[in-house]
Nucleic acid binder design. Structure first.
Lengths: 343, 343
DNA sequence: TTGTAAGCGTTATCAC
DNA sequence: GTGATAACGCTTACAA
């Protein structure tokens, strides 16, 4: 079995309390005693048992981060930034993958609650389902009363829940992107959404529609396709359908960059050119957009920044009132995939 | 404070032992008693304390995954796959970011050892430094004697360490890539390496040199540039230097796809065309290579597969002898970024 | 400055 | 079937 504090104490000829004091350095210990203890520790290769420690102090040194998919750079960037801040406080950031499933998300939150993590960060948008949200609100409540901070990063606040929210202004970002296309002269703009009943999907589509309305462009149901997911595959499929339309759009917006990548591929494969024949735009500004062909016009979300802020609040480095909501502004990034429509 | 087993027991009018039995379902409990207990649990919103539990059973339900950088899809894919398998066994996978620093890596391994995780997966190549490796070997030894499995995924085995190794055949992959370029007629092939003294860097460069030697192409030191890191930036810089050479190469290989992306950009910005003027190739086959322009010829590493295998071993789903080493074969992926040299 | 001993919240081993 | 009770490995009053 593993070496315990008692083993070290015996070897050093002191009490286990003394060993604990040496290791934590929070009480005075004679220099010679300290030496002996430290020697015993290294001779035995002693490693504290985080469980026993956490049980005794009733406080863990972990911080939970729940994301849809670490292999998606959107979440990878967010998670990495959060972990960077956690590490400053010597906290271990646990990153959990839900695969986008609300059920898995709730399961992970419960798992993290069991671990008595210092904080839980829920990153990325979420499904807009009443049952799920009330259940989540319940868990957040439990977390709060157990002293576990909860940070919502990149999703809307939950009514009445004691969580700090850092939301992206998806609506505003989508509005400015669509405005840009309108200003370039586009009137028939295709739009491919993300997963249905998802906060990010809804907010971005709303912004798009608002911009159209502001410019008196009538809403055409047939131009807005349900992508079903935030991935390249779905972007490709939906774009193929849009391009097959008798009166095809002069521009296509993907609800995120991955979808837009699929659109780019579909346009290319149909023998048309971007942006000459069809303009394409995305959302998020993930690194690969720069190397896409043509480089992708998109809306930049400051993910690193947002992740850092969320991480600091979670790690207790920054104060934030439970219930506080702040909004992070996106920025329009104009590149080569958008031009005026062919006249 | 948080609700404890004793609180539940009091409320249900039973002993805490009974509550534990109901929750774990490993002993017979009368149906009526069970009902009462379950009601109390839900009324009080009881959540087990994983620390106390782990302390009592001397076994945690976590699994550690150590990577360089979650926001890099290479690691994201690996980590995601590992976590997927862990989750089948109801294990919580803790993903830790080292940022490529051996010091951080050792720190995280120690942190995970404290948590008494069931297993630790070290993913991705590592620095080839004797001190670091002996220290790591020591930690692996401690892990082994504490019953923590260690899996090395995507890095060379450590001599004598009780860890299971799943390595990529980087040398073989690089060899087949360079052979492909040679077969297309290239003789002046630029090569941009990853970070110095890094297992992946070394193995891939070795394979490249072997292929050159097999085809009697003399080794030209001036064509192999030290990228310094596996990123786009470095690829761009090194490529710019190669392109400025009086007798510039007809093809450039990046030690990974990110470097190759930088090369693509540098070639484009220098007014040359890929593959007409310069061919470009990468390594890893990350998703973005498909959307690069032109689409990237590369060497495919089955990351998802490798991650799954590592995850299954770590989670105890698959048996593997400590010390076992297996090699994962890469596959050449031919796309549009490579053509014959302009004659 | 150091040792003793009482928790921390579970599980597991006995009895009954 | 169920209830006491002793671990599990650590921290921290309280004594000495």
């Amino acid at each position: 079995m593993a070496v315990t504090l008692a083993d070290v104490a015996k070897r050093a000829g002191v009490s286990s309390a003394t060993v604990s004091r040496v290791l934590n350095g929070n009480y005075p210990v004679a220099a010679r005693t300290r030496q002996r203890v430290l020697r015993a520790v290294s001779e035995l290769n002693y490693v504290v048992n985080a469980y026993a420690r956490a049980l005794a102090v009733n406080m863990s040194d972990m911080l939970g981060v729940v994301v849809n998919d670490v292999s998606d750079p959107f979440f990878g960037l967010l998670a990495g930034a959060i972990q960077g801040e956690a590490s400053r406080e010597d906290l271990l950031a646990v990153i959990c993958n839900t695969g986008g499933s609300p059920v898995e998300e709730l399961r992970y939150v419960e798992l993290l609650l069991r671990q008595r993590t210092r904080a839980i960060v829920l990153a990325g948008g979420c499904v807009d389902d009443a049952d799920y949200l009330t259940e989540l609100a319940g868990l957040i409540d439990q977390a709060a009363s157990a002293g576990t901070r909860v940070v919502l990063c990149g999703r809307p606040p939950i009514e009445g829940a004691r969580a700090v929210t850092l939301n992206f202004d998806n609506r505003g970002g989508a509005r400015s992107l669509t405005r840009h296309l309108l200003a370039m002269g586009h009137r028939r703009i295709g739009y491919i959404t993300g997963p249905p009943r998802h906060s990010t999907t809804t907010e971005r589509l709303q912004g798009h529609r608002e911009a159209l309305a502001q410019h008196d462009v009538p809403w055409d149901e047939g131009l807005a396709l349900d992508g079903g997911a935030f991935d390249r595959e779905r972007g490709w499929e939906a774009a193929a359908r849009l391009l097959a339309l008798p009166d095809r759009p002069t521009a296509i917006i993907g609800a995120n960059d991955s979808i837009a990548l699929g659109v780019l591929a579909a346009v290319r494969e149909s023998g048309l050119q971007v942006p000459k024949d069809v303009s394409v735009a995305g959302f998020d500004d993930l690194p690969f957009g720069l190397d896409a062909y043509p480089s992708l016009t998109t809306v930049r979300l400051p993910l690193l920044d947002a992740g850092r802020r969320a991480g600091r609040i979670a790690a207790g480095l920054d104060q934030a009132e439970p219930g506080a909501v702040s909004t992070i502004r996106p920025e329009l990034i104009v590149r080569d995939s958008v031009a005026g429509p062919a006249s």
